[in-house]
Simulated assay, not measured.
Amino acid sequence: MLDKFAEELREQREKSGITIQQIAAKTRIDKKFLEAIDQGNFSFLPELYVKAFIKEYAKVIGLDEEETIKKFLIAREGKDYNEVLEQEKLEKEKLKEIKKQETIQPRQTVKPSPVKSYYDDSLNKNEQSDSDRDKMKLLYAAIAGSAIFIIVLLYIFVFNKTDEIIVEETPIEEIVSNNSQRFEEETTNELTTPVWTDSLVLEIFSSETTWVNIFPDNAQPVEFILYPNSARKLSAQNSIAATIGNSGGVSLKLNNNPIEFSGRSKTVRHFRIDKSGKLEYLNTPPKSGQKNDREH
């Protein structure tokens, strides 16, 4: 099914009169990755990376990006995406028709039955008596409530004097906001030199299209794609962990000093840099709040 999917992409591209080179120029995606998509080879990089490239490819040749990704995911499971999408369309139309029928059908109105009324003097007297008793109960309840209120006030102001100082608690939202990890990032082809307040400032330079996943101080990850001849600067207080998809296409600087980083083209690499500037390679991808095993 992936071959069929790739064939449809290729046919649409040729029908639009667009070449692989033109797509590469518009999207800044490496030509060899676009050729792999054109040939039905979708295993050249991690899935997230591939989906991003397919979206850009579809956009340039005039296809709906979200529908194209949906077809790719269905084809990856070995299913005929045309049949699946057609079935979904039929189910939506059927549901729409049911709602339409419910709207058209008139609502049945129920006529209220006539209420028979009569006057009974004895019943009226009983009701009056019950009303008087209810008023007395309310009066007694009000008196009791007032007495309790007075007792509570006496206890607070007379019997419960204390020199204890009451400290207003800071809302939890404010504490979380004040103690959240700072994370600054800058994406530009012409790098500037801002003033950084954090201990670690990592610059990633990319000579090829590269997927990056960064964990500053073991916090939530920041994921992005670097295109050829671009860079990104990130900062943290104590440590930076990262996963780089195309590790052979990047070089690193820590606090404006180059650091030695070994990677290979089309190979994923995991690493961590601590406050001392030491770089350690990891066996597994880093996760938020978790320390990973080092390579031996």
Rank of each mutant, 00 (worst) to 15 (best):
D3T: 11
F5A: 08
F5C: 06
F5P: 06
E7Q: 15
E7T: 15
E8C: 10
L9M: 07
R10H: 14
Q12L: 09
R13H: 05
S16R: 15
T19F: 10
I20L: 14
Q21P: 05
A24M: 04
A24G: 04
A25C: 05
R28Y: 10
R28D: 10
F33Q: 05
L34T: 02
L34D: 02
A36P: 06
A36D: 07
P46F: 00
E47T: 15
K51C: 13
F53L: 01
K55D: 11
Y57N: 07
Y57G: 09
G62L: 02
L63M: 12
E66D: 15
E66S: 15
E67W: 01
T68L: 08
T68I: 08
K70Q: 14
K71L: 01
F72P: 04
I74G: 03
I74N: 12
R76P: 01
G78N: 09
L85H: 07
Q87M: 13
E88P: 10
K89L: 11
E93H: 12
E97I: 10
I104D: 13
I104Y: 08
P106E: 09
R107H: 06
Q108L: 06
T109L: 15
V110L: 13
V110Y: 05
S113I: 03
P114N: 14
Y118W: 03
D120T: 02
D121W: 07
S122M: 04
S122Y: 09
K125Q: 15
N126L: 08
E127S: 06
S129A: 12
D130V: 02
D134E: 15
M136H: 01
M136A: 11
K137W: 12
S146L: 15
I148C: 08
F149V: 05
I150W: 08
I150G: 06
I150N: 06
I150C: 10
I156T: 12
I156G: 01
F157E: 09
V158Y: 12
K161C: 07
T162V: 03
T162I: 07
E164A: 09
I166N: 05
E173D: 11
S177E: 13
N178P: 00
N178M: 03
N179S: 01
R182M: 04
R182P: 08
R182Y: 02
E186K: 10
E186C: 07
E186F: 11
T187P: 00
T188S: 07
N189A: 04
L191V: 15
P194E: 09
V195Q: 09
V195E: 12
W196P: 04
D198S: 11
S206T: 03
E208T: 11
T210P: 06
T210R: 06
W211E: 13
F215K: 03
D217G: 01
F224K: 01
F224N: 03
Q237R: 13
N238R: 05
N238D: 07
N238S: 12
A241K: 02
T243F: 02
S247I: 04
V250K: 04
V250E: 00
L252Q: 03
K253L: 15
L254T: 03
L254E: 05
N256R: 09
N257I: 12
P258Y: 13
S262D: 06
S262V: 05
G263E: 11
G263N: 02
V268Y: 04
R269Q: 05
R272W: 01
I273Q: 02
K275V: 02
S276G: 08
G277H: 02
G277I: 03
E280D: 09
N283H: 07
T284P: 00
S288W: 02
K291P: 00
R294E: 11
